[in-house]
């Protein structure tokens, strides 16, 4: 008994058609796959999304970026720029994208120190950006303010005289005593050190002008007080405090912009530290025996 259908039978034609279609499909698939594989067009989309000016190997060049460039270069926008202007800038953006992609292919993030530094900065900045998009609640800001209230004090201010007693046999203790009794400095022929003769100063400036040791003495004086003699390398100093206004803490309302800034800075630092911990944790880092 012969099971092979006759050459011109319907069954034979149907089998042959199936085989041809199957082969054609496979060939077509291979051509498409090969085209995609060997021409780097695998991610190409059929149309350019509305927000894009171009796609470069599937990476979008945004119309918004083109518009920004038109404004900064030609002081015009998409609606009013000439075709030549748009073309020139778009070509520049496409060139930039091509070179960025080529740079990645060449491994520049591994080799070029500027690219590496820029990537590190940009990644840190990215964490910061994510932190800033959410506004802390008022309770959180107030809690921070209460914990760091001294930081939000205004600079203290002081107006004082700094006299130097030369080592010529004068008795500093007697001079201090006379000053405390109300004698005018001029009547005692006192000479100013010249360090704080410009009138009222902020604490930070007084510290710079007087030096840490004399500033510590000055800061403890109340308005109208005269210090004990302070022996310094250039002679004995006597400080006469005319007005001392210690730092006054700003209220929350007065300081809240600074509080918000500090809270966000702190959040950024914590997130960046957390990000680094995460990166280290997921990375496979092996250190040479000699450096462990």
């Amino acid at each position: 008994m012969n099971d092979v259908p006759p050459f011109d039978s319907d069954t034979f034609r149907a089998d042959r058609r199936s085989l041809v279609l199957c082969g054609t499909g496979a060939l077509l698939g291979l051509i498409i796959a090969g085209f995609g594989l060997f021409t780097a067009q695998g991610t190409r989309t059929a149309h350019i999304p509305a927000e894009d000016a171009a796609l470069v190997n599937g990476v979008p060049v945004l119309l918004a970026d083109l518009n920004t460039q038109l404004q900064s270069t030609y002081n015009t926008g998409l609606a009013t720029a000439s075709r030549a202007q748009k073309e020139a800038l778009l070509n520049g953006l496409i060139r930039e994208e091509l070179y960025v992609q080529r740079g990645v292919e060449l491994g520049l993030p591994n080799d070029d120190i500027d690219v590496r530094a820029a990537l590190v900065n940009a990644t840190e900045g990215q964490v910061a950006q994510d932190a800033l998009t959410s506004r802390p609640a008022d309770d959180e800001l107030r809690a921070w303010y209460n914990r760091h209230i001294e930081k939000y004090a205004d600079q203290g201010r002081m107006t004082l005289n700094d006299y130097v007693i030369p080592a010529d046999g004068s008795d500093p203790a007697r001079i201090v005593s006379r000053l405390r009794q109300g004698a005018a400095p001029a009547s005692l022929s006192l000479k100013s050190s010249g360090r704080v003769d410009d009138g009222e100063e902020f604490y930070f400036a007084a510290r710079i002008h007087l030096g840490d040791r004399l500033f510590a003495v000055a800061r403890a004086l109340r308005s109208g007080q005269v210090s004990d003699p302070v022996a310094m390398p250039d002679g004995v100093h006597i400080l006469v405090m005319l007005k001392n206004i210690p730092p006054i803490p700003a209220t929350f309302e007065q300081a809240k912009d600074a509080v918000l800034r500090d809270v966000l800075d702190d959040k950024v630092k914590r997130l960046q530290a957390g990000n680094e911990r995460f990166l280290r944790k997921r990375a496979d880092i092996r250190i040479a025996a000699a450096l462990r």
């Binding site: 509305a50 927000e51 119309l63 918004a64 926008g77 998409l78 609606a79 009013t80």
Partner: peptide, 10 residues
Amino acid sequence: AAILRADPDT
């Protein structure tokens, strides 16, 4: 899409 393609200032 028309909004995205338009000059934003128009």
